[in-house]
C-alpha cells in the first residue's frame, strides 16, 4: 500500500516536472530561435513571454478538432497521437532523476521504477513511438502523412540499431544495465565522458538520438518543404499537440539518457554532490543538478535545429547503415580491447 502511494506520488511529480519542462522547452526553442535570427521572440504574454506556454496550451485546447472526411479508420487515427506521446512518458519512469529524498523518515528513491534492465526498457518503449507515427501516416489516408510515416519508420528503425549498439561499450565497462548502477558507478569513478575511449560511443549516441527524436538535421518525417507537415498534416487541436508533446518529451528523455549515461546523472564530481543524499536539501539539489544538465542538452537540440540544414533522405540512410552501424561494431571491439588491456574498471 505504502509502495503504491509513494510510486503514485513519484509518477505525479515526474509527470508534472516533465510536462512543465516540455512546455518551457517550447518557449525556450522559440526564444533561442528568435535570438539566433536577431529577433526577440515571444514577449507579450507575461514577462519575457514566460506565460506563452499556458496561452499556447489554452489555444490548443480551444481549437476545433477537425476530422477530415477522407479518414475512414477513426480508431487508428485517434490511436496515432496517443501512441506517439505515451512511450516518451513511460520511458521517463525508468530514469533516475535524483539520488534519494529523506522524507517523512523514509529514504525515497528518486526513480519511479528501479529496473535492472532499465536501458533495454527505455530503448524498447521509446521505439514504440514509431508506431504512433506509422499509424498516423497510414490512418490519415492522404499522401503527405503517408510519405512522412514511411520515412520516419525507416529512419527510426535504422537509428534504433545505432542507438542501442553505441551504448554497449558503456555497459561493458559497468557490467550492468541498470541506470541507477550507471550513475553509482560514475559517482565512484568519473563521468563516462571523461574517459576518452568512450568518446566515439558518445558521439554516435548523440547523433543517433537526434535522428531517433526526429529533430533537425534528421527531421525528414516532417520536412515542411516537401511534405507540408509530414505525418501530422491531417491532425488538429489536442491530437496535434499530442504529437508535439511526444516529440518534446522524447527530446527530454533522450537528454536524460545522455546525462545519465555519460554525464553522471544527478551527481557532480565533488562532495557532497557525488554521494547519495543524506539530507533533503542535498536530495533536492541533486534533482536540480539533473534538470540543469538536461537543460544544457535541450539547448543543444535547439541550437542545432536552428543551425544545420536538413540532410537528404539517402544521405540519412547511408549515414545510418553504411557508417554508423559498422562504426558502432568496431567501437565495441575497440573498447573491449581497451578494457581488456587496461582493465577499465
Amino acid at each position: 500500500m505504502e509502495f503504491v502511494v509513494i510510486t503514485m506520488a513519484k509518477i505525479a511529480v515526474m509527470l508534472g516536472v516533465l510536462l512543465t519542462v516540455v512546455a518551457y522547452t517550447v518557449w525556450l526553442e522559440r526564444k533561442v530561435c528568435a535570438w539566433m535570427q536577431d529577433r526577440v521572440g515571444p514577449n507579450r504574454v507575461g514577462p519575457f513571454g514566460l506565460l506563452q506556454p499556458l496561452a499556447d496550451g489554452l489555444k490548443m485546447m480551444l481549437k476545433e478538432d477537425v476530422l477530415p472526411r477522407h479518414i475512414t479508420d477513426k480508431a487508428l487515427y485517434t490511436l496515432g497521437p496517443l501512441m506517439a506521446m505515451v512511450p516518451a512518458l513511460v520511458t521517463a519512469g525508468a530514469i533516475p532523476w535524483g539520488s534519494q529524498l529523506p522524507l517523512f523518515g523514509r529514504q525515497i528513491q528518486c526513480v519511479v521504477a528501479n529496473l535492472n534492465a532499465a536501458v533495454l526498457v527505455v530503448f524498447a518503449t521509446s521505439s514504440f513511438a514509431v508506431y504512433g507515427i506509422v499509424l498516423a501516416g497510414w490512418a490519415s489516408n492522404s499522401k503527405y502523412p503517408f510519405l512522412g510515416g514511411v520515412r520516419s519508420s525507416a529512419q527510426m528503425i535504422s537509428y534504433e540499431v545505432c542507438l542501442a549498439l553505441s551504448v554497449v561499450p558503456v555497459f561493458m565497462q559497468i557490467g550492468s544495465l541498470s541506470l541507477c548502477h550507471m550513475v553509482e558507478y560514475q559517482t565512484h569513478h568519473t563521468w563516462m565522458i571523461f574517459m576518452p575511449w568512450q568518446w566515439p560511443s558518445f558521439l554516435i549516441f548523440i547523433i543517433s538520438a537526434f535522428a531517433e527524436t526526429n529533430r533537425t538535421p534528421f527531421d525528414l518525417p516532417e520536412a515542411e518543404q516537401e511534405l507540408v507537415a509530414g505525418y501530422n498534416t491531417e491532425y488538429s487541436s489536442m491530437k496535434f499537440s499530442m504529437f508535439f508533446l511526444g516529440e518534446y518529451a522524447a527530446m527530454f528523455v533522450m537528454s536524460a539518457m545522455m546525462v545519465t549515461l555519460f554525464f553522471g546523472g544527478w551527481s557532480l564530481p565533488f562532495a557532497p554532490f557525488n554521494r547519495p543524499a543524506t539530507t533533503l536539501w542535498i536530495g533536492l539539489a541533486h534533482v536540480a543538478i539533473f534538470l540543469a544538465k538536461i537543460l544544457v542538452f535541450l539547448f543543444l537540440y535547439i541550437w542545432i535545429r536552428w543551425t544545420i540544414p536538413r540532410v537528404r533522405y539517402d544521405q540519412l540512410m547511408a549515414l545510418g547503415w553504411k557508417i554508423f552501424i559498422p562504426l558502432t561494431i568496431v567501437n565495441i571491439v575497440f573498447v573491449g580491447i581497451v578494457l581488456a588491456l587496461w582493465g577499465g574498471r
Partner: peptide
C-alpha cells in the same frame, strides 16, 4: 562546417535585435 555554423548562430544571440 557544422561547428562553424554552430558558432555563427551562437554569436547572433547577444547581437542587436531588429524587431
Amino acid at each position: 562546417q557544422v561547428l562553424q555554423g554552430l558558432w555563427q548562430t551562437l554569436s547572433h544571440i547577444p547581437r542587436k535585435k531588429f524587431t
